[in-house]
Amino acid sequence: MNKYELLLIFDPGLADSIVNEKAEKIKKWIEKFEGAVTEVKDNGIEKLAYEIKKSRQGHRVEIKFELDPCKIDTFKKEIKLEESIWRIFVKRI
């Protein structure tokens, strides 16, 4: 099991409740892959350094978790299918 940090940028047009729901969904995915979530941090709507989809703002969410290294690629592929998530960044801690 390795420790990872996942940073997501959501569409800022979405309500907070919907973003929370989606974060919960990702948590469930991690648990489905036999991993464990250690921390979830919602940074709220923040300024972006450049435009993404004609918007200067984004809703940033940070998730720290543990997962088997051979499952991380399939996990990333599943998140990328979500349309409301604009950017995904996974880093091993």
Binding site: I9, Y50, K91
Partner: peptide, 14 residues
């Protein structure tokens, strides 16, 4: 490079 990827830093300034 990681910070640019997640729009914390710009690739090219405005």
């Amino acid at each position: 490079k990681a910070a640019r990827n997640i729009a914390l830093l710009p690739y090219v300034n405005d």
